[in-house]
Write a protein that binds this DNA or RNA. Structure first.
Lengths: 204, 204
DNA sequence: GAATTAAGCGGACACGGCGTCCACTTGTCG
DNA sequence: CGACAAGTGGACGCCGTGTCCGCTTAATTC
């Protein structure tokens, strides 16, 4: 076997103009398709046709539908992660030195509210990305779990990791979509989750 | 249009012997296939071949994989439903006249424990049946939701229906399977759910 | 601005699962 | 034993997936 890693990898090879153009077309078309109708029913053919490119070209960059949805979703999720780490209380941790941060239950409730906002705007993308068990293997989910487990530990709960998984479950995109379709408003969902947050992590 | 419902439907037409034999073969083969490996990966072809019958025969009785899994799962779910309605406390309601039934939080915890038992034995069937959003449209789920909403109402919680959906979410079969694969024991899962039950419906 | 090169492109192809259809077989009943 | 309906099973068409390979075109060099 010949080792192929001398002299580092050099500068990242620039993306060609036509490739960039096609990438943009794909993302725009996919966003549109996911938003209208059942995201799980969108096929790679659909996206290629809507973007006006060939199947081969589409597969060159994106191996499957989920990777396209993730590309569209990533920036939104990153923004929320940033606010969790460094944003204002009660979403963020508050002043670390003063020791006067918000209670864990408050922070969990704020996180719930932010996630409901995100779902309300982008459920179709979350459903277009990993669904079912695969969802638990994404980087984003690992982050949410870490965050909630941290809050549970702060609240003195035993086995924070297991509790974190269970507290994240009500945010499943399939449940959210089902509730919204049954006419439940985001406000009622958030209210229920707020109660849950205080019940689970409050000093009850 | 000719109305076709005079004189009731008469006696239910007996099932032919060969049909009954094939049904049994199908159920046995499906049970085996679901148990070994990924239930979602089992195809109708697989089942027909394992049962030693033709595709057409299989489709005659079962329109899809989910209906087969449900046929296998139904009796177990019915048994639990029966215990919820008329079993001993804390799973059942206790003596209705005496007014000394178990607290809602206790009953929810008992329900959680029973569901974990059921999942531990039959996750593969639940995953073989409806998964994702379709799960929320099953009769079984409607029953669980009714039960939990009833408990939430007894506990004086606002918007019991919404809270019920959220309290059922941690029982999602995909989550259960994922936790078990990560090495989490049923005991830890039940413990976390018990804490959740008391937090959400206890007199916090 | 022509020549060179490799990245990008896209249609054709094979594969596999789904669901249906229909000619044949077999159990059941008179 | 004969008639008939219920049951059977394999072949067929459809659709989505993912790959492969000859052609096109953007970028680079002189």
């Amino acid at each position: 076997m010949t080792t192929e890693l001398p002299l580092a990898d050099g500068p990242p090879p620039r993306e060609r103009a036509d490739a960039a153009r096609n990438r943009a077309k794909v993302l725009a078309a996919a966003e549109r398709l996911f938003a209208s109708g059942d995201p799980a029913a969108v096929t790679m053919d659909d996206i290629a046709r809507a973007a006006g490119i060939g199947r081969g070209t589409l597969y060159r960059r994106y191996p499957d539908r989920a990777s396209i949805a993730r590309a569209l979703l990533d920036e939104h999720e990153r923004a929320l992660q940033e606010r969790l780490l460094r944003g204002d209380p009660p979403l963020g941790p508050g002043d670390p030195a003063a020791g006067t941060g918000p209670a864990p239950a408050e922070r969990l409730a704020a996180f719930y509210a932010a996630m409901v906002d995100l779902l309300e705007t982008h459920v179709h993308l979350v459903l277009g990305a990993e669904t079912g068990e695969a969802r638990y293997r994404t980087g984003a989910h690992a982050f949410w779990r870490l965050h909630v487990a941290h809050l549970a530990r702060e609240a003195g709960r035993p086995d924070p990791e297991v509790l974190a998984d269970q507290l994240l479950a009500p945010l499943a995109p399939e449940l959210f979509r089902h509730q919204r379709e049954r006419g439940v408003t985001p406000e009622r969902i958030t209210a229920g989750l707020t109660a849950l947050a205080h019940g689970a992590l409050g000093q009850g």
